[in-house]
C-alpha cells in the first residue's frame, strides 16, 4: 500500500530528458531525471513493478512501467510508439522537458520471494516491466535461488534489452533462453512460442519453490499460464502485471477498474489466482 498522501496527487513534476537510446523498431529508451534533485531522491524509493504517469503537456498523460531497478543509478522509461502521447515522447530530444508523477501501484513483493527460484517468462515488450524485477534480484543475488529468463519475440530484431540479457547471463548469475516466432538472417537460436522453451532439451525448469513472472500480449499470456499450470505451478505462485487505460494512476478516475480491483492502486501486480477472480478478460 502506498503511504497516505496529502499532496496534489494530479500534479506532475518537471523532468529533463538526458538521452534516448534506440532499442528495437518503434521502441526507445528514454533516460531522464527530475529537474529538482529532491524529487529525484524521493522518487528513487520505488519498488520493482511500480509505474509512473508521464505527461507531455498539450498532448496528455499516460502510465508507463518503470524498467529500471531502484538499485540502478539512472531512471528511464522504455516506450513503444503507439498512441498520441507516446508519439510525442518519441519526438523529444535530449534536454527537452516533460513531466512525471509517481511511483504508483503495489509493485512486486520482492521480500516474499526470498529463498525461492525466480522464473521470468516474457513476450515482446512484456520484458519491460519485468526488467526491474530481474535486475533487483540479480543485485540481491544471494537472497534468491535459481533465476531463469524465458523470452520470446516475433523476430530476432524485436528482442529487447539483448545487451543487458547477455551481460546478466555472464558468470552464471542467471540463465536466459530466447526464442523467436520467425527466424531471420543469422538466427541460429530456438524458433517457436515462449512456452515451447520449457520443454526444450537442455532446459531444466524448477517448479517447486519457484515463482513465475509472466508478462506479454494477452494471447501469449493465456498459453503460458496453461503451460505453467500443466508443469505444476500453483496459481498463487504465478505473478503478472496488468495494464489498462488509465487517467489518474491513484484510484480515482475509474478507467482501470476491473472486477473489484483498481489496477493502479490494487495492482498492477497480481497473482494468477487474483487475476482469475477479477472476472474479466485481461
Amino acid at each position: 500500500m502506498n503511504p497516505p498522501n496529502t499532496e496534489n496527487i494530479y500534479l506532475p513534476k518537471l523532468a529533463v530528458l538526458d538521452r534516448v537510446v534506440d532499442d528495437i523498431p518503434e521502441v526507445k529508451t528514454f533516460y531522464w531525471r527530475f529537474e529538482d534533485p529532491a524529487e529525484q531522491a524521493k522518487f528513487k524509493h520505488f519498488r520493482p513493478g511500480q509505474f509512473a504517469q508521464v505527461s507531455l503537456f498539450g498532448v496528455g498523460e499516460f502510465p508507463a512501467s518503470l524498467p529500471p531497478s531502484p538499485t540502478e543509478e539512472e531512471t528511464f522509461f522504455t516506450i513503444r510508439q503507439v498512441g498520441s502521447c507516446t508519439s510525442a515522447l518519441h519526438q523529444l530530444k535530449p534536454r527537452d522537458k516533460f513531466a512525471v508523477r509517481g511511483p504508483y501501484g503495489n509493485g512486486f513483493p520482492m521480500e516474499e520471494y526470498e529463498g525461492r527460484n525466480l522464473t521470468f517468462v516474457a513476450g515482446g515488450i512484456g520484458l519491460i516491466p519485468l526488467r526491474s524485477c530481474i535486475v533487483y534480484a540479480l543485485q540481491n543475488r544471494a537472497k534468491y535461488g535459481r533465476i531463469q529468463v524465458f523470452y520470446g519475440a516475433k523476430t530476432p530484431g524485436e528482442l529487447m534489452y539483448l545487451t543487458d540479457l547477455r551481460a546478466w547471463e555472464k558468470g552464471g548469475a542467471m540463465e536466459c533462453h530466447l526464442t523467436v516466432d520467425r527466424a531471420a538472417n543469422g538466427w541460429d537460436g530456438h524458433v517457436g512460442v515462449v512456452g515451447s522453451l520449457f520443454k526444450k532439451s537442455g532446459v531444466d525448469m524448477p517448479v517447486d519453490n519457484t515463482t513465475a513472472f509472466v508478462c506479454g500480449p494477452p494471447v501469449m499470456f493465456r498459453f503460458v499460464i496453461k503451460d505453467l499450470l500443466a508443469l505444476g505451478f500453483k496459481e498463487n505462485h504465478i505473478m503478472s502485471t496488468l495494464e489498462r487505460y488509465m487517467k489518474c494512476g491513484v484510484g480515482k478516475c475509474g478507467h482501470c477498474c476491473i472486477g473489484v480491483a483498481y489496477i493502479c492502486v490494487d495492482g498492477p501486480v497480481f497473482t494468477y489466482e487474483q487475476i482469475k477472480k477479477l472476472g474479466e478478460d485481461i
Binding site: Y10, F57, G60, E61, K247
Partner: peptide, 16 residues
Amino acid sequence: CFTVSDRQVGPEEVER
C-alpha cells in the same frame, strides 16, 4: 469517473 484532457489555451499555455 472522469477523463483528463489537455487543451491549448494560448500560444505557450496549456490547460489540463
